[in-house]
């Protein structure tokens, strides 16, 4: 039985942002989505190394999209969560839910 893949906190944030964005997930939109939902803006360097690492682990796949003039004629790299990535994020979130069960945190709906 293969060892389950454990995700870091930032990897989980990035995977969830990609899932929320669907087909429009690429560097800029992922960064904006994380900033909008978590009030923290990741640096591009941190985001791109995380995307690179997750692609190497098989958690996401990427493909080149259209090039636009405001990007200096450079393509966007769209990313998508793979089945392995979906399984890993589901497992990580289930663990969080289990840990949260019975806890009363300030500003949280969990009980």
């Amino acid at each position: 039985m293969p060892t389950p893949l454990f995700l870091g906190e930032f990897e989980q944030v990035v995977l969830l942002a990609i899932l929320r964005l669907g087909d429009t997930a690429y560097g800029v939109t992922i960064r904006n989505e994380i900033a909008a939902q978590t009030d923290r803006e990741p640096t591009p360097g941190a985001l791109y190394t995380t995307l690179d690492r997750m692609e190497a682990k098989g958690l996401i796949t990427s493909k080149l999209g259209e090039a636009t003039p405001e990007r200096g004629g450079r393509s966007k790299r769209y990313v998508k969560v793979t089945a392995k990535g979906l399984e890993a994020i589901s497992r990580a979130q289930r663990s969080f839910q289990k840990l949260l069960k019975g806890l009363q945190l300030p500003g949280s709906a969990h009980a």
Binding site: Y26, G27, V28, D52, T68, E70, R71, R74, R77
Partner: peptide
């Protein structure tokens, strides 16, 4: 990194 990796990153930074 490879040019294939670098090009979209520069594009993203150009966009912002």
């Amino acid at each position: 990194m490879t040019p294939e990796r670098a090009s979209p990153i520069v594009g993203d930074l150009m966009e912002d």
